[in-house]
Design a protein around this nucleic acid. Structure first.
Lengths: 233, 233
DNA sequence: TTACTTAGTTGAACACGTTCAAGTCGAAGG
DNA sequence: CCTTCGACTTGAACGTGTTCAACTAAGTAA
């Protein structure tokens, strides 16, 4: 808004480098969609982007880092796609279902090479690992989305559980994605089935947790999460 | 036993090739333990095994396939390690706990490069993917182990759930392994904590499933599994 | 013995991801 | 105008996993 940002952490003026960076990323995603990840070579990316091979490494530390960039992008698409629904709908189950459906829709074009995402995601050394510091911003945004899913609904949830639930839902959603990656059925029908049903189950479980019978289990789950967090520090 | 097997599917007589094969595998695991997976080159393996580079590919289709061989081996170690306990103990929770503990113990020497296992495991294209046909024997053996855990215990489990539970427990155990891979705490303490607590929770849930309140949820879970299996065919 | 066959072995060659020392470009300072 | 400096760009070179056509060894039938 003001005349000039003096020294902002991440200014937004597009330099020459920014253009090159974007061209490389755009070209890479294009090729990934066309031929898949493994079959796309860095040389091919550089060539189509009209850039020297080494230059791609000036902007992206590795081939995998190109995927991280893609990951951030689909996440933003997903946020947009479910904003309307979250503003309108008040029923927890429908909210969660909507979020998961739009997630699948947003990811669909990349199903072909999404495997590589999880391939790296499961590798503790990879920057793509969702638990790595490098991707924690995306993860936090993602769990924030699930917090929003809960907040906008009218369901009563015990406060202790409420605090942890976004993390658990994020984990749940990662499980779904993992299933989706392996799902070769046309239009990912099996994953859709899984989502429809599992959302129902999850929603039920959430409401059930208020029952006295389940209190001990709930407490144990929460205590476990606490302890793990302790030892992590 | 008899004089000569005429044409058995997979005879057991050790040919020259078997020796070479074993030497390569042994050397590979040795180097993996010493330097980790990424840092071990196929050339180094070939050299120490006193074999030509190309020969390693005669016996193992790829570097990853060497890991699959290792995977089968630790699984056998694990089976042995928990046999005694399963013969003795009758309490479900203790049985499950014992199995999971021994699993971690058996895997401990390989923690350093276990990441690569899951890296490939999450990739739908990889032969290491636990859902792939190539590794289904190991998976079946593994779920059979969990069936044994249930069978030897005195807990009453609804038959419909009983049929699916080994698969669910296998999934649970994969989740634990995934956590373990990312666990950098000394001696994998965090994973141990996770196991101690989560086994308790799982055991509780299993016994709780007989409760009338939980019947609808149980039924829905089972129906979901059924539907997914249907669509897979 | 000789010819044929199959299992096992070889290392040069290939394609790829990645690195790096050397460049080019454009703006700021003199 | 020249110089300097740092952002940006270049492509040759490296190390890697993997392939392959050619070779050897050893057994089998004639």
């Amino acid at each position: 808004m003001t005349a000039e940002d003096p020294v902002p952490p991440e200014p937004a003026r597009p330099t020459r480098g920014d253009q090159t960076r974007q061209k490389i990323l755009e070209t890479a995603l294009e090729l990934f969609r066309e031929k898949g990840y493994e079959e796309t070579t860095m040389r091919a990316i550089a060539e189509r982007a009209e850039v020297a091979l080494g230059n791609t490494y000036y902007y992206f530390r590795s081939k995998e880092h190109l995927i991280q960039a893609f990951y951030g992008r689909t996440h933003e698409e997903h946020l947009e796609a479910c904003a309307a629904l979250l503003a309108r709908e008040k029923d927890l189950k429908k909210r969660l279902l909507g979020v998961m459906r739009t997630k699948l829709d947003a990811s669909a074009p990349y199903h072909r090479f999404a495997g590589i995402l999880f391939k790296s995601a499961a590798d503790p050394m990879s920057p793509l690992n969702p638990f790595s510091p490098e991707s924690s911003p995306v993860r936090q945004e993602s769990t924030a989305l699930f917090a929003a899913v809960l907040d906008g609904s009218k369901v009563k949830i015990p406060p202790d559980l409420r605090a942890e639930l976004p993390n658990l839902l994020w984990l749940y959603h990662m499980g779904i994605i993992l299933f989706w990656i392996h799902d070769e059925s046309p239009g990912a029908r099996r994953t859709q089935t899984l989502v429809e049903h599992s959302v129902d189950i999850v929603a039920r479980l959430i409401t059930l947790t208020s029952l006295p019978v389940l209190r001990p289990v709930r407490k144990r789950v929460l205590r476990l999460l606490d302890e793990l967090r302790e030892k992590a520090a």
